[in-house]
Design a protein around this nucleic acid. Structure first.
Lengths: 211, 211
DNA sequence: TCCTTTTTGATATATTTTTATCGATATATA
DNA sequence: TATATATCGATAAAAATATATCAAAAAGGA
């Protein structure tokens, strides 16, 4: 366990986890790497290798005990150890994320949003408050915030990132379609939907052409 | 040009494109692979190789003409050739996507959303209509829809996918945190936010531990 | 009890992706 | 006009990732 985990493996672990939770709810007590691989369209050796980073629950001839594997994955991904996050930019996407409670099961607790628009300041979405930008330093200090989620338009994203960094944020989840310039010790994860869309679109095109 | 494009390259092309558009607006007429690489934190050989798939605009000592490169990328990614899409599931996320007009510049035209909830049927978001599920076959037929976007909860996603496939959809953009079972000739692109979050969270953890 | 089957986990091989090296080319300058 | 330099594009090397093979372990039936 705790071998070095490749980036790609880390990408797949949450996928396994959600499949396992689904299967567990259906009453599946044991599941083999081969079954998982077939369900997800992956190679069974790869699945076994991936899982070996986080768990030793596998037993020959039996497979993995679903509940143990789920716990091991949650533990490995640190989903039990919730981290506080704030959203900057309470537009459509920002509000959608603010109101979505599903992230708590991934160890993310969104505590508030911030926006420059004075009309939004003071309002809330599902009891999560939206503040004016000026309040950011104080909220960050009081609530032990680790993660900043940027959902502003591209042209303001960099200045927001600068503010977050100045206030001590160490991880940024960036939904703005632009790349951010931050100090080396700050982590940025870009959620680039355009990119996903490009893949889909390109595959579709190829298909439409080959007819 | 038109060499075989790796999946990873395809992921990066839209990122280059948006950077280039930004730079072009700032008045940058020529840009070198090295400059791009530095701005995005990539290797300059990789950038050159990636771009070579879509363009031959590069000139020694000069770099790439920004406007030509932008056109070549748009052309390669087929962003000029818009495709119609529908959204299934008009919850927070579905509505956010429906109201977001930014996808048109990526060649995606969202024409309508569908939802089982009778309260939503007949309403609209930014002039984009929300229909009852029953209307799906007729809308798909009339509007030449190619792409289905699933923003329902995980437990209904598979049945929605089945309906889409039955009505002739050939590409699905899946935001539900579950994997879909579809015929081989249907393309699925999963937009798994949990996965991005896992990466961010894991890196953050490592950082927090190493202090 | 012994054999067969299924499955894990380790090791080895193959493939993909990234990075380094190098010659060729265009531009600017002396 | 000759020379220096930045840059491209191609090829080669290195690194990362995925797949195949195989022995060992566990379960179930003969």
């Amino acid at each position: 366990m705790n071998k070095q985990v490749s980036k790609r493996t880390l990408y797949r672990l949450p996928v396994y986890l959600s499949l396992l939770q689904e299967k567990y709810q259906e009453g599946v007590e044991y599941i083999s790497a081969t079954t998982i691989a077939n369900l997800l369209g992956l190679n069974h050796v790869q699945v076994r290798k991936d899982l070996s980073c986080a768990s030793t629950a596998g037993r020959p001839k039996v497979g993995y005990a679903t509940d143990v594997l789920i716990k091991d994955l949650q533990n490995f991904l640190d989903y039990n150890n919730a981290k506080n996050a704030i959203i900057i930019g309470a537009g459509d996407l920002g509000k959608a994320l603010l109101g979505y409670n599903g992230f708590t099961s991934y160890g993310l607790n969104i505590v508030a949003a911030f926006d420059n628009n004075p009309v939004l300041a003071g309002t809330s979405v599902k009891e999560k408050p939206i503040f004016a930008m000026e309040k950011l330093p104080r909220v960050m200090e009081n609530m032990n915030v680790h993660i900043g989620i940027i959902t502003t338009p591209a042209h303001t994203a960099q200045s927001i990132a600068d503010i977050l960094v100045k206030n001590g944020i160490k991880a940024i989840w960036n939904f703005a379609p632009t790349s951010l310039n931050v100090p080396d010790d700050v982590i940025v994860q870009n959620e680039n939907m355009a990119t996903s869309l490009a893949i889909l679109s390109s595959k579709l095109n190829e298909k439409l052409k080959n007819r």
